[in-house]
């Protein structure tokens, strides 16, 4: 496959004895957007954690390749160089991304500084604006505890995108947002990623968001990728029974009672 940025090869991983990922095969091209859809506990977040090299997850077999290099067991310095600048991450719980008591500005400055980037207020407010956070200057002077979960979530997306990663990993980033905000944020995030040719690997149970942003969708169930294909094909001509069930369970406007 051309320009494959991230490649997951037959990955099996476990928490302790419990296998959570089973023989996962997935390649993501430069600038491509792939969504992992499944229920909670299906393993979609674990797949992100495996790419990030989170310590409590043990890789039993298989590999993770980034830009052709095996990063499955990368640690220390090599891992630090990858995370942030190359592979960005927005966790599900936005409160976990920030110190609740420090102003955003100080925290985002620190994050940028530690990756050797300079703080450019124009650039920062522009990105906040794109994520529908108006009055960016004022927001940057606020502290996370003063903001709603949804605003914190968008701040976390902004700070990840400011590092200009080549691929952004997102875990359920819209679950704290209401539909209107989710639709806007998703649209803007999609445009931002397209402009910058940032690849996107997003775990979600929201098929509507995947429909809007994904080039391809992978359906995860019980640690296995049960179906993987182009977004349109998955949504309009699913092959697996489980995918069909998922699609049927999504409420649709104007479909009667």
């Amino acid at each position: 496959m051309k320009g494959e940025l991230l490649k997951i090869e037959h990955l099996t991983a476990s928490y302790g004895e419990e296998p959570v990922l089973k023989d996962i095969l997935l390649g993501i091209g430069e600038g491509e957007s792939v969504f992992l859809v499944g229920e909670s506990g299906s393993g979609k977040s674990s797949l992100l954690r495996a790419v990030l090299g989170m310590e409590n997850l043990t890789v039993v077999s298989g590999r993770v390749l980034y830009d052709g290099k095996d990063i499955t067991a990368a640690g220390g310095k090599q891992r630090r160089e990858l995370l942030g600048r190359e592979i960005g991450f927005v966790p599900q719980n936005p409160a976990g991304s920030f110190n609740p008591l420090r102003r955003y500005e100080a925290q985002i400055r620190d994050i940028m500084g530690s990756h050797g980037l300079t703080w450019d207020p124009e650039e920062v407010t522009e990105i906040l604006e794109k994520l529908d956070l108006k009055e960016g200057k004022k927001l940057l002077r606020m502290r996370p505890y003063e903001m709603s979960g949804g605003m914190n979530q968008r701040m976390a997306i902004a700070s990840a995108m400011l590092l200009k990663p080549r691929i952004l990993l997102c875990d359920e980033v819209t679950s704290a947002l209401d539909t209107t905000t989710a639709a806007r944020v998703v649209k803007e995030l999609g445009m931002l990623c397209t402009q910058r040719k940032t690849a996107l690997l997003m775990a979600t149970h929201h098929l509507g968001i995947a429909a809007r942003l994904a080039d391809r969708i992978g359906i995860i169930k019980d640690g296995r990728m049960t179906e993987l294909g182009d977004t349109d094909r998955i949504l309009t001509a699913p092959r697996e029974v489980y995918t069909k069930q998922l699609l049927m369970d999504v409420p649709r406007l104007g479909r009667g009672r």
Binding site: T179, T180, A182, A183, R184, V186, K187, H206, L207, G208, I209, A211, R212, D232, L235, T236, A237, P238, K244, L247, M248, V250, R252, L253, G254, G256
Partner: peptide, 29 residues
């Protein structure tokens, strides 16, 4: 419900509907 969602009177309801349609799935063939 059907009347409000099919023929909303307020601009705001229209906006909510537009956002909901943005995330609406296509029909399975």
């Amino acid at each position: 419900t059907r009347e409000v969602l099919e023929r909303p009177r307020s601009q705001y309801t229209n906006e909510l509907l537009a956002a909901a349609r943005e995330l609406e799935l296509p029909e399975v063939k």
